[in-house]
Amino acid sequence: MSDIETPATELKAQYAAQVAADLERNTKEQERISTEVAVLQKQLASLQSNQVMLANLQQTLGAESPAATSAEPAGSAAATAPVPRQALVRKTKSRNAAALKPAETAARNGTKAPTAAAVTKQPTLVELIRRHLGLQSEPRSAAEITTGLTQAHPDRDIKSKVVRVTVEGLVAKGSVQRAKQGNSVFYTTSKTPAADTPAKQKDPTTA
């Protein structure tokens, strides 16, 4: 009889130990979950508080519509202006400042801001050469023409080679006359009498 009860007692003790271990794990798991729930509840409460604050702020900003603010007195407009309006003012000022930059730069440099009409009215190189030669009392070389145009128009990039090609083109068209003296070539407008060219000009002392 005692031999039969001994295995049953041992099995009961094993079950009891297993139950105790499971109970302990259950208790620890509850404690862990309770801690996490407390943290989540704290986060939830914080989010709910922020939600209320944001909702009140949204309602306040929504009340400041353009129709409502237009009826406010002029003296209180600056004090009660909502944030979006201030941002709009800053954006408008920035856009106006960007538009004034060319004029301000020209003012600092002592020049006038270029306009579209001024750019389109600039004379061509052909016109500049013909005008320059027409003002001269004697023929000029390509280098002298380039120097004169550069001094008269410092804002333009005038190259000697381009001037030489252009004036030769005017010679081909008959607008400019060419005269060679030694190894140098001189140019004058076709309106200038032929006697004024270096090759045919008389010496005043021998006239």
Results as ranks from 00 to 15, higher is better:
residue 16 A to P: 03
residue 22 D to V: 15
residue 25 R to W: 06
residue 26 N to S: 14
residue 27 T to F: 08
residue 27 T to A: 12
residue 27 T to N: 14
residue 28 K to W: 09
residue 31 E to C: 06
residue 31 E to L: 09
residue 32 R to T: 05
residue 33 I to M: 12
residue 34 S to A: 08
residue 36 E to P: 02
residue 37 V to E: 07
residue 39 V to Y: 07
residue 41 Q to D: 10
residue 42 K to Y: 02
residue 44 L to I: 03
residue 45 A to I: 02
residue 46 S to W: 04
residue 46 S to P: 01
residue 46 S to R: 14
residue 47 L to Q: 11
residue 47 L to C: 12
residue 51 Q to V: 10
residue 54 L to Q: 15
residue 54 L to M: 13
residue 54 L to S: 12
residue 56 N to S: 15
residue 57 L to S: 14
residue 57 L to D: 13
residue 57 L to P: 05
residue 59 Q to N: 11
residue 59 Q to G: 10
residue 60 T to H: 13
residue 60 T to V: 10
residue 61 L to N: 12
residue 62 G to Q: 12
residue 63 A to Q: 11
residue 63 A to W: 08
residue 64 E to K: 10
residue 65 S to L: 07
residue 66 P to H: 05
residue 67 A to W: 07
residue 67 A to C: 12
residue 68 A to F: 05
residue 70 S to A: 15
residue 76 S to C: 03
residue 78 A to V: 05
residue 78 A to F: 02
residue 80 T to E: 08
residue 80 T to N: 10
residue 81 A to C: 00
residue 81 A to K: 03
residue 82 P to M: 02
residue 82 P to C: 01
residue 83 V to I: 08
residue 84 P to K: 04
residue 87 A to P: 03
residue 90 R to M: 10
residue 92 T to H: 10
residue 93 K to F: 06
residue 96 N to P: 00
residue 96 N to V: 05
residue 96 N to M: 10
residue 99 A to Q: 06
residue 99 A to I: 04
residue 100 L to W: 03
residue 102 P to F: 00
residue 102 P to Q: 01
residue 103 A to S: 10
residue 103 A to R: 06
residue 105 T to S: 05
residue 108 R to Y: 02
residue 109 N to W: 02
residue 110 G to R: 01
residue 111 T to Y: 00
residue 116 A to L: 01
residue 116 A to E: 00
residue 117 A to D: 02
residue 119 V to W: 00
residue 123 P to G: 02
